Amino acid sequence: MLDSRLPKDALVCLPYCWHTVPNTTGMILLNRLYRPVSVTAGEYVDYADFPELMVPRYMIHDELYLPAEVPSHTPNDMALHTMFCNPGSDPRRWFFNDCTDPRKGKKQRQRLAGVIRANLNALEELQ
């Protein structure tokens, strides 16, 4: 899907962030609508109904989530590093933001593909 121009509805299928699951120690993978990946807007969604999209929080805060191909010397790259590796007061971890929206072109789609790959690789290594 990330090889070509994205259709408008693609954002419901792409990971946007890891988000805290209330009353648990886990996090869930959400799309840009803050719904579980592949769920469109609509009524209330109970995150507990999507266990296949949840992982323990300790897995998300690992340094492995910073894509290796991103250098960390420019201000933008330092901001990216903070988004993925800083477990400060906001535990969410972002795959893209308004500046790196994958609908903005091939470079941003490739960047998102790299972030997704890094997340998958990290999850596989921790299992």
Rank of each mutant, 00 (worst) to 15 (best):
L2F: 09
S4Y: 08
S4C: 01
L6S: 02
D9R: 13
A10L: 05
L11A: 06
C13Y: 11
C17Y: 08
C17A: 15
H19F: 07
T20L: 04
N23G: 00
T24C: 03
T24Y: 02
T25S: 14
T25R: 12
T25G: 13
I28Q: 01
L30P: 02
N31E: 07
R32P: 00
R35W: 05
R35V: 06
S38K: 07
A41C: 02
A41K: 11
G42Y: 04
G42H: 03
Y44W: 02
Y44S: 02
Y47E: 08
Y47K: 04
A48Y: 12
D49S: 14
F50R: 01
E52S: 06
E52P: 02
L53T: 02
M54E: 05
Y58D: 14
M59G: 02
I60T: 13
I60N: 04
D62E: 15
E63Q: 01
L64P: 00
L64A: 08
Y65R: 10
A68V: 14
V70E: 14
P71A: 08
S72Y: 07
S72V: 15
S72N: 12
S72D: 14
T74D: 02
T74C: 00
P75Q: 01
P75W: 00
N76I: 02
M78I: 13
M78W: 06
A79P: 03
L80Y: 09
H81G: 04
M83S: 09
C85N: 10
N86T: 08
G88Y: 14
P91F: 02
P91E: 10
R92S: 15
R93F: 05
W94Q: 13
F95M: 08
F95I: 07
F96T: 11
F96P: 04
C99T: 14
D101N: 14
D101P: 03
K104M: 13
K104D: 11
K104Q: 14
G105C: 03
K106M: 06
Q108S: 10
Q110A: 06
I116H: 09
A118T: 15
A118E: 11
N119R: 09
N121W: 00
L123W: 03
L123R: 03
E124T: 03
L126K: 15
L126G: 03
Q127D: 09
